[in-house]
């Protein structure tokens, strides 16, 4: 039914989306907390920076990343010359590309959920002797966990559909970095629209079920 190439595209897509979501989860929760609860200065600057990938074309974000991690890039050179690691055109690069593009989506949803946690509850926890860190993981996070999960699913879905930054950074290598969107692109380029249709169908089913799950989680009441 599905060709080995299609199966591998689905597998790579899932692998990349799962890894990129897990990768951004801890920093996204931290940034969400900073934006929602802390009173540091320069919050709007951080927020703008986090949201940049939403405003930029993914190809442009991908280009920035390429400058950063290619063999001659600022970070890439260190990785290559000192550690012998080259990220570009590997599936790790696809993870990185998806992570950067999906990051703001997770932060937006998680941040709103954390803002909805009553600061008075957090103050109550403080007066009961809880440190800010304990307040975070016993009160703030449990009460905003639905938002964090919904945001993660959203980020996962966005990773599944990532195209622009991925093709810039990881290329379009079948069996290695070729995800579903890249495979669809290939099919159309080479005039095999009918093959592409199957993948389009699968991508649509995946996206719909994930979004539906996120929707039902976030619309359910917390208590």
């Amino acid at each position: 039914m599905l060709s080995p190439e299609e199966i591998s595209a689905i597998y790579i897509s899932m692998k990349v989306a799962v890894c990129s979501t897990l990768l951004i989860l801890p920093p996204a929760i931290f940034i969400s907390w900073v934006l929602a609860k802390s009173s540091i200065r320069g919050k709007s600057f951080i927020e703008t920076l986090v949201n940049m990938p939403l405003a930029l074309a993914p190809v442009v974000s991908g280009f920035f990343l390429l400058i950063l991690i290619s063999r001659t890039g600022v970070v890439g050179r260190i990785l290559y010359e000192d550690l012998g690691i080259e990220l570009t055109f590997t599936w790790y690069a696809a993870v990185l590309a998806s992570a950067v593009i999906a990051f703001p989506l997770l932060v937006r949803v998680a941040r709103v959920a954390m803002e909805e946690v009553d600061p008075k509850l957090e103050n109550a926890a403080r007066t009961l002797g809880a440190s800010p860190w304990r307040v975070f993981y016993t009160v703030t996070l449990p009460l905003s966990i639905r938002g964090v999960i919904a945001g993660s699913i959203l980020a996962f879905t966005r990773s599944l559909g990532e195209f622009g930054a991925t093709i810039m950074l990881a290329g379009n290598i079948p069996g290695k970095t070729q995800t579903i969107p890249l495979a669809v692109f290939n099919c159309v380029q080479t005039g095999h629209e009918d093959e592409g249709l199957r993948l389009v169908f699968i991508a649509t089913i995946l996206a719909f079920s994930a979004l539906f799950a996120a929707q039902s989680i976030s619309s359910r009441t917390t208590h």
């Binding site: 008075k120 109550a124 926890a125 009160v139 449990p142 208590h223």
Partner: peptide, 11 residues
């Protein structure tokens, strides 16, 4: 501190 609204942890 016993707050006006009780403020129990709902979860």
């Amino acid at each position: 501190y016993v707050f006006q609204e009780g403020l129990l942890f709902p979860h």
